[in-house]
Nucleic acid binder design. Structure first.
Lengths: 345, 345
DNA sequence: ATGAAAGCGCTAACAT
DNA sequence: ATGTTAGCGCTTTCAT
């Protein structure tokens, strides 16, 4: 790699000052049209690319944003990332990936990156309070948008789905097709997202006047494994449920897998609803009934929100809610009556 | 946000020069232990964080690497990203995500980022030649590692799996359990990865002395849809195959889905092998037999290779090959003989 | 419409 | 062991 072309090189070549070249490259109307064209031409010829460090140092901006997730390995974030990336690119921003791995210290490191100029803003999708930067988060005013998750009590702008409402809708679907013995596998408690989804389940059950045996609410942690364990527990009950609402798809799939291993048919013996609409959840057998979140849109809107804030706009006082939709597919079926073993399959 | 603490602030506070503070913070042995401690203390107290732009400008490094993939939405890259990220972090590097979307122009943009100081190095997983930077790639010597894919004819260091060998192994498994009418859905041709996997299929078939009807090699493009189309085509043949090797899991799952819709049982009527060991491919029904790549390790090793190169080490002249393993699960079963309808299910 | 000069915050070569 | 000086490449007053 030969030495890089600098503004100075272009300036010397044209007998101009670096200042004029800088202005010309920025399309400043202060520079004569003719000069601008000559500068552009020489810049192209020399393959000029501005040095980002120098520019960033001078402008005190990095033109990069940080997207921090709970765990990069979760495919759930991919479409969100795509939405963020597309919107960021269009505005000239690069996207840095942060993997918090549920570690508050890592969280802090990413806030550090905001301070040290690595990034101008952050899209936080972890729902965790950082430790060292707690006060800053509490106070708000940081160029940070919280998406999907919630940091309760913080003044940061939030972009969310209506977890409780979506969960209630999923459970209502089960009720509508005749189920009354409906169980729930929760996400990790007491995290807000899990609590809300559980609250939606409880609300829908209560509103329908259904009873909620203690045994029917099983603690999970969003992992495949916890879905399997929940299935084992539930199907061994004296009165096993005829339907299950899982707080995410991974647990739903784990549960279905285990139920099948136990000799139960889905949806013949038990209906299952998930939450997330995971990649390929529609080609599972049977295709999974689940709550879909508009992931790409969430990404786009979170980034748009962040861009507004970076441009000096006021952060929204109220959380922005994006709508979800229930995808009714093959893992839910009307309840079989005792006398009619074949109905609804 | 109040004004940032600079080295100068710490220096003034301690009556030292900025240079000494800079050295102290870098743990230079030139600075007295006692001074170092005092500097550290004041730095912590003032929450000092070095300004990365200034440092990068001075050191001509960004301490960031770029990971460029074909399409961020493919979950396949996630574990690789995790491996890259972990290794990068440990070495003090941040990871920038690049999404090439099969567009050579985007590819060029990411090479630009190498030149303009956005990143010090790049892990390329697209297998595409860039346009403008073609010559640079041809010449080699760039801080770029190509992983998973190949840029044929370039002198860039490569980290790969043995696509041909792995494909042959998968097909041999089908042959060993009695199949002779084995079809193949290819990836997008003429991309090297797809060509190699097809070559492995052909080699295994030839070595076993099996015939290869033209109809048995169907062109796909790695999408779910092309897997479905291939299944429709193959199962409508006069002599449909009894086994299918798909060049990736997504096509395998699409094919299985379609076969089931067509009334065929997998693996009862037809066995299917995929390639990639996608997330959750083991909880599909039936669990997918597939070729597993050590994704996290690929990420770690690619990043380690890049770190070596960034440290001035010589790039490996030969491609580095990481081993794959065949996961035999539920979508493959011994061939049913005509007289024994029940065997092997 | 253009130029001269200053300075962003840091590190490294060269003193002492 | 510490200080002085210079400069990375850029943008932005302030002059003309």
């Amino acid at each position: 790699m030969t030495r890089r072309t600098r503004i100075k090189d272009i300036a010397e070549r044209l007998g101009l000052s670096p200042a004029t070249v800088s202005r010309a490259l920025a399309e400043s109307p202060l520079v004569a049209k003719e000069t601008r064209d000559r500068v552009r031409e020489v810049a192209d010829e020399l393959h000029y690319r501005p040095n980002v460090s120098a520019r960033n140092l001078r402008t005190k901006r990095s033109m990069a944003v940080l997207m921090v997730v709970r765990d990069v390995v979760n495919p759930f974030y991919l479409e969100i990332l795509k939405g963020v990336e597309a919107t960021a690119r269009a505005a000239g921003y690069a996207v840095l990936m942060g993997n918090a791995e549920n570690d508050p210290d890592r969280e802090d490191e990413y806030f550090d990156m905001l301070y040290d100029g690595h990034a101008d803003g952050m899209i936080l999708m972890t729902g965790k309070w950082p430790r060292r930067h707690r006060n800053a988060v509490e106070a708000g005013g940081l160029p940070v948008v919280v998406a999907l998750e919630m940091i309760e009590g913080s003044r940061l702008p939030h972009l969310q789905i209506d977890n409780e409402g979506a969960a209630a809708e999923a459970v209502r679907h089960l009720i509508e097709i005749g189920h009354t013995r409906i169980a729930h596998v929760t996400g990790p408690l007491p995290e807000v997202m899990s609590v809300k989804r559980m609250a939606g389940y409880i609300r829908a059950m209560k509103e329908a006047g259904l009873t909620l045996p203690d045994d029917y609410v099983v603690k999970g942690n969003f992992s495949l494994h916890s879905g399997m364990a929940a299935a084992r527990f539930l199907m061994a009950l004296e009165e096993p449920p005829t339907a299950l609402f899982a707080a995410n798809d991974e647990m739903a799939l784990g549960a279905i897998h285990e139920m099948r291993a136990l000799g139960f048919d889905v949806p013949g013996d038990i209906s299952v609803v998930g939450f997330d609409n995971l990649f390929l959840s529609d080609v599972f057998y049977p295709p999974l009934t689940t709550v879909a979140q508009p992931r790409a849109e969430i990404g786009r809107r979170a980034m748009t929100l962040l861009l507004d804030i970076l441009a000096g706009g006021p952060p929204p006082a109220e959380p922005v809610i994006v709508p979800t939709s229930l995808k009714i597919r093959g893992t839910t079926a009307p309840l079989k009556t005792r006398t009619d073993q074949k109905q609804g399959v």
